[in-house]
Simulated assay, not measured.
Amino acid sequence: MRLTFEYEPDDPRQSGFIAALKERYARFIDNDHPDIVVVVGGDGAMLRALHRRTPPPDQPARPIRFLGVGRGNLNFLMNPSSVADQLAELDPAAMPCHRVHPLWVQANGELIGAAYNDVVIGAGVADCHQFHLDSTDGEFEGYELRGTGVCVATPLGSTAFNANNRGVVLPLDVPLLSVTGIVSNRDLSEIFAGSDLSIRFASRRGVTVFLDAHKTRHLDCSGVVRIRRDETRWMELTFVNDGEFSRRRIDLLKGKRK
């Protein structure tokens, strides 16, 4: 099995741990053609690793398998840190994995990046914007909304901000998105089965587009943000104990219903 390691270089908690792992598993390391990318840290480290290894949509891509070693503040997408002691024994072919598809995001016709968790369009909680949602399949057609923002979440990201925003927690392996309004005049919480959603906005102060909680682009006054789910490419998240990860999601859903 071939491994490569990724982590956040500016996180001092990981440097010594990573150095020890690289020494311990030196004979397995292949940075150019790994079977598994081992991500050390928390959920943020995992999302940033996914982004770093996602080529633009006009370039060829192949699925890459990621395994998280949880040593961050939030480890929902990660395996327990004890997995670091088992890396030499893992069989990639026998490990269950979940496909995660990117959302490509355009702002006024320009590609601004990809998201694996969610796309949030808005600004401060005191601001109010006008939104119009349209989709190519007609599921949204001139849907009008006034509020702080709109969140579009993938199945992977539906347990994050989307869940706190009273959105639907989606099963991981379904081609669906969860769409919610943020502090809005309409109770928008919909499951979207399409793959192409356009959100027009009008705002006195403009809006900011956040991709996976990263402030990506500020847009002035009015414009269009297009979100497209890419069915043709994906990354793979793997868990040593897949049942434990599923229980985590179920427990979150149960807590949300209380």
Rank of each mutant, 00 (worst) to 15 (best):
C128E: 14
C128P: 01
Q130T: 15
F131Y: 15
S135R: 03
D137M: 03
G138I: 14
F140Y: 03
Y143E: 05
E144R: 12
R146I: 10
G147W: 10
T148S: 15
T148V: 13
G149M: 07
G149N: 03
G149K: 03
C151H: 08
V152R: 06
V152W: 06
T154A: 07
T154R: 06
P155R: 04
P155L: 03
G157T: 09
T159Y: 10
T159D: 03
T159F: 12
F161W: 13
F161Y: 15
N162I: 13
N162M: 09
A163R: 06
A163F: 12
A163S: 11
N164I: 09
N165A: 15
N165K: 11
R166N: 12
G167C: 05
V168A: 11
V169S: 04
L170T: 01
P171H: 04
D173C: 07
L176V: 04
L177G: 02
S178W: 06
T180D: 08
G181T: 09
G181D: 02
S184F: 08
R186W: 10
L188E: 02
S189K: 10
E190Q: 13
F192T: 09
G194W: 04
S195T: 01
S195W: 01
D196V: 04
S198Q: 12
I199T: 10
R200I: 04
R200Q: 15
R200E: 07
